[in-house]
Design a protein around this nucleic acid. Structure first.
Lengths: 177, 177
DNA sequence: TATTGTTATACTCTATAACTATA
DNA sequence: TATAGTTATAGAGTATAACAATA
């Protein structure tokens, strides 16, 4: 067999996953003692900057379920990094605010993360800033992408409806092309 | 409070996560009927291109445990997409090869994914190719990054050893800056 | 009635340990 | 003895459903 048309290196999803895993591994040393690890740090970031009005919005922003966020904030609050403040205008809502200690901890970790990220993007050389810029732009515009309106699905030939079974010991139907 | 120094949008980890989640959501419609979803597709990609010599290498490449890969290949094999072939030179090793059907399915999905990815990166305009290039470069060089040798950890002020407790109902020690 | 957040519970996904077979 | 792969099991992570408080 000659050179394959597109090896796994060409797969955008694989590359995204590989870089993301690499990032998580690199960052672990800096934030592993925070409850929730990298995600706990992101909650702290949002709290320091008053990023989200309430928990529901914050959960969407972080891509997690609101019930998961409850436990996460519980731990951060018990560590004295953030605190829940009732919104006087809507007493159902809770504003997540960083404590003084939380702000100090965040500032330190943020500086350390800058070093890690610089190292992580080091192989890009002068293009590291370009990558940051493009990635930030993408992240800011993800909500504009609606898969349901994509023509990619229509492009895909119709397949027999074989629902994806993740159950381990179930014999799946063979996929026909 | 004036403009915060660095909101969550500036966080590289958040941006990576947001884009990665967006990718997974976008791709789901194309690969959801494959066992393992996007990851099953990646195994199929590797199988089509003879990407990994054995399962252990493939597991490392995909960032998953080898025991997880076993179940994943089980399902793909039962669907008739890949098959395990014993390596004649080391009969412990199994080569994961795509079946004829698997190659056909992969070719179709790969074409559909191209559309999804183009749509996903659409907001970057002409810079989409640049982003792909930089991301691929990063993914190819992730192994060069060793967090243990990073100066970022030394940059971080020494903290009391407060191991990260993910247990839900345990009172964690308060973090001192 | 709808929404925010919480809690209990069930489910999914992943990792650990022990095993077989090959080297 | 060490390694590749498998299996059973335990564990971590996540989501579903029911609830209380507020709108």
């Amino acid at each position: 067999m000659s050179t394959p048309p597109a090896a796994i290196d060409a797969d955008l999803g694989w590359a995204l996953g590989a870089v993301y895993r690499s990032y998580l591994k690199a960052v672990e040393a800096v934030v592993s003692d925070l409850p929730g690890g990298p995600r706990g740090y992101q909650v702290l970031t949002s709290a320091v900057h008053d990023g989200a009005g309430n928990q529901a919005d914050l959960a969407v922003q972080l891509g997690i379920d609101r019930t998961v966020l409850t436990y996460l904030i519980d731990d951060l609050e018990e560590c004295g990094l953030v605190e829940r403040q009732a919104d006087p205008r809507d007493r159902r809502r809770r504003r997540i605010a960083a404590t003084h200690n939380g702000t100090t901890v965040w500032t330190q970790r943020c500086a350390a993360l800058e070093h890690v990220e610089r190292h992580l993007l080091g192989s890009l050389g002068a293009d590291a800033d370009t990558f940051r810029l493009l990635l930030r732009h993408l992240a800011a515009h993800t909500d504009e992408f609606d898969p349901s309106t994509s023509e990619a699905v229509e492009h895909l030939e119709r397949l027999d409806e074989t629902p994806n079974s993740r159950a381990r010991r179930r014999k799946p139907d063979p996929l026909s092309p």
